[in-house]
């Protein structure tokens, strides 16, 4: 058989394609797009709900995560995204590299003084509404590094956190549970408890003019953004 002509059976007959169609749809009218609810609702196929509730339901089921790796926990976070644990099954598994496309930020690791302002900036760049999952002990209290001279004692010192997942590092199952809990809260429209954020990103000129600020005045511009760490007040 030469290959420049169509095969005979396809050319002649339309039977195979209609067979396929029937086996897909079954016999009878095409009702693939009608849900079973339609029958129950009869002539008015509408559901009445509050718009907010609907939005929360949608939001909870489609979360885009920020691809944000800091320390050890990010390895377990990668395992949570990857096969075997596959966070995507829960409608929350697409890591986005840009904070402008993300809804949820998983903070996976120790935050140190140099990184604090950057994390705050990344958080600020995410569009509202946004949610934060603190992963691991370091984001709760500084974890094993709490005594360190350079370690921020928990992510909540800088950004508000919705869900804390304890562990060092938490297992992927624990992170999945944390994300599922967050989804549940979003669906129910529950808000996070108010948190104290002692460390803010502010302009250098707005800092109280104490000894340290005067010493640094020649190095830093008035309108440069800075974060001031008062270690003595840390928990």
């Amino acid at each position: 058989m030469s290959s420049d002509k169509p095969r005979q059976e396809i050319y002649d007959s339309t039977a195979p394609s209609s067979d396929t169609r029937e086996s897909r749809m079954g016999a009878g009218p095409d009702d693939r797009f009608n849900s079973r609810l339609r029958e129950a609702f009869g002539a008015t196929p509408f559901i009445l709900t509050k718009f907010d509730q609907f939005m929360n339901w949608v939001r909870g089921n489609s979360m885009f995560m920020l691809q944000f790796g800091i320390a050890c926990c990010s390895i377990e976070m990668m395992h949570t995204y990857a096969i075997k644990h596959d966070l995507d099954r829960f409608g929350a598994g697409v890591p986005r590299a840009s904070p402008r496309q993300a809804d949820v930020m998983i903070v996976p690791g120790t935050i140190v003084s140099k990184f604090g302002p950057r994390m705050k900036r990344v958080y600020d760049q995410m569009p509202e509404p946004k949610f934060v999952v603190g992963m691991g002990s370091c984001t709760i209290s500084g974890g094993p590094f709490q005594e360190g001279y350079n370690v921020v004692k928990g992510a909540e010192e800088i950004i508000p956190v919705d869900i804390h997942v304890p562990g060092c590092p938490p297992r992927p199952e624990a992170l999945v549970y944390g994300v599922a809990k967050l989804q549940e809260r979003i669906r129910n429209g529950e808000t996070s408890p108010v948190v104290v954020k002692p460390y803010e990103l502010e302009q250098f000129g707005d800092l109280p003019k104490d000894e340290l600020v005067q010493k640094l005045a020649s190095d830093i511009d008035e309108d440069d953004l800075v974060m001031r760490y008062n270690w003595a007040d840390s928990p």
Binding site: K114, R121, Y149, L201, V213, D224, M227, R228, Y229, A232
Partner: peptide
Amino acid sequence: DYDQEQPQVVTLSEHA
């Protein structure tokens, strides 16, 4: 003689 309690200021100037 380092005092761990002293406050520190960290800038974000590279990204300002």
